[in-house]
């Protein structure tokens, strides 16, 4: 069971959280400007990487805040926790 360091509450068991899937998928500012394929890309297509992954979690049974997590999908090791809206570690910002 993962141990996730909620930025507001500290390290807590995974059972207090819910995973919200891939991070950094911004909703298009003008959906009408997208063709069906581009809209489908936003809606459904995912990187689903093997290895380093950036994903969103919410501390559902705690402070109910969302945040980003960088986690390895093979080892499950968490290498970073960072706020919503911030770029991943080492990628500008």
């Amino acid at each position: 069971m993962l141990l996730i360091a909620c930025p507001w509450c500290g390290p807590r068991d995974e059972t207090e959280f819910r995973c919200g899937g891939e991070a950094h998928i911004a909703r298009p500012k003008d959906p009408d400007a997208l063709d069906d394929a581009a809209w489908a890309d936003y809606l459904f297509m995912r990187r689903n990487p093997k290895g380093r992954h950036r994903e969103r979690w919410v501390h559902a049974a705690g402070c109910r805040r969302w945040f980003n997590v960088e986690r390895d999908t093979v080892s499950h090791v968490i290498t970073a926790v960072y706020p919503m809206g911030k770029p991943p570690p080492g990628e500008g910002g």
């Binding site: 069971m1 999908t73 499950h76």
Partner: peptide
């Protein structure tokens, strides 16, 4: 399990 994984391993809860 709710998270993405390639580990063939899940959480006991």
């Amino acid at each position: 399990d709710g998270f993405n994984s390639y580990a063939q391993r899940g959480s006991f809860p």
